[in-house]
């Protein structure tokens, strides 16, 4: 594994490898999600308790899973940047944050739409919804912090520090929200175990969403590498022109 990450430290090699992998991952994601949707709409039965609204689960649960997994990926990448100074670590962290935030938003949005028929209201201060909402705020903080700095390398390291602080605090936030919820609310009766006929489509959708996430993450990383390349070339171009003018004007040199 160490040798793989070392190999990938070369952006050119990463571009080659990711270029060949990306179509396969994207294709697999499309096929698996299509099969999952077929199972969801044509095969899977309605839940005896929730009726057809259980169909929201097949997109809500994978979104929530990706919201957390993306934050984990951001945290691992931040660790890789601060500790190992891996050249692609920040590219990975920067690429994962907006995608993770998008899935966090989807988890909240679909959760709220699921809540209306189930609980009779769009928003309840359910422990899980509340935790995901705070996770969403952390994503927003990461994006805002990065955009507030002009120097990219400083912004990258500061964002990494915040991501790691978030990882340290998140379990405490989760714990306190659970505590707070049991203190104020009766259980929402949402804990029934999932029947196998519902579980198989759910797992397939989760797999498809995960592959989709990795395809988007790879693409975002490739874009970011290109963006940095363009930026470096523009700087080199300007430096080159300054060098030329310095040659023609010896006093300035």
């Amino acid at each position: 594994m160490q040798t793989l990450t070392q190999k990938l430290a070369n952006p050119t090699r990463f571009m080659q490898l990711s270029g060949t992998m990306l179509p396969w991952i994207a294709g697999a994601a499309a096929v698996i999600i299509a099969y999952g949707l077929y199972l969801v709409f044509a095969v899977s039965p309605p839940d005896y308790q929730q009726g057809e609204t259980v169909k929201i689960m097949y997109i809500h649960v994978p979104s929530a899973w990706l919201a957390m997994m993306a934050y984990g990926l951001v945290a691992v990448s931040s660790f890789g940047l601060l500790v190992f100074r891996h050249p692609l670590a920040d590219v990975s962290a920067k690429a994962a944050v907006p995608i993770g935030a998008a899935f966090t938003f989807l988890a909240l949005f679909t959760g709220s739409l699921w809540g209306k028929p189930m609980w009779g209201t769009y928003w309840v201060w359910d422990a899980r919804l509340t935790s995901v909402l705070i996770l969403f705020f952390l994503y927003l903080g990461l994006m805002a912090l990065r955009s507030s700095m002009d120097d990219e390398s400083t912004a990258a390291k500061l964002t990494a520090v915040l991501a790691l602080v978030g990882v340290a605090i998140l379990p405490i936030i989760k714990f306190s929200v659970d505590w707070w919820n049991t203190l104020h609310q009766p259980s929402t009766g949402f804990t029934s175990t999932v029947d196998p006929s519902l579980r198989v489509p759910l797992l397939i959708m989760a797999l498809g969403f995960t592959l989709l996430f990795f395809a988007m993450h790879l693409k975002a990383m490739r874009n970011e590498i290109l963006r940095r390349r363009v930026k470096a070339m523009r700087v080199a171009d300007i430096a080159h022109r300054d060098g030329m003018s310095a040659l023609s004007n010896p006093v300035a040199g």
């Binding site: 057809e52 929201i56 979104s63 699921w114 989709l212 693409k219 874009n223």
Partner: peptide
Amino acid sequence: LGPHATFIWLSYIAVVIVITGLISWLIFDG
């Protein structure tokens, strides 16, 4: 999809919009 079809469709439409939005932004940016 029964009495709550609107909620189900809205959820799926939101997911489709956000994901196609992300994908087209990624392709455009690239």
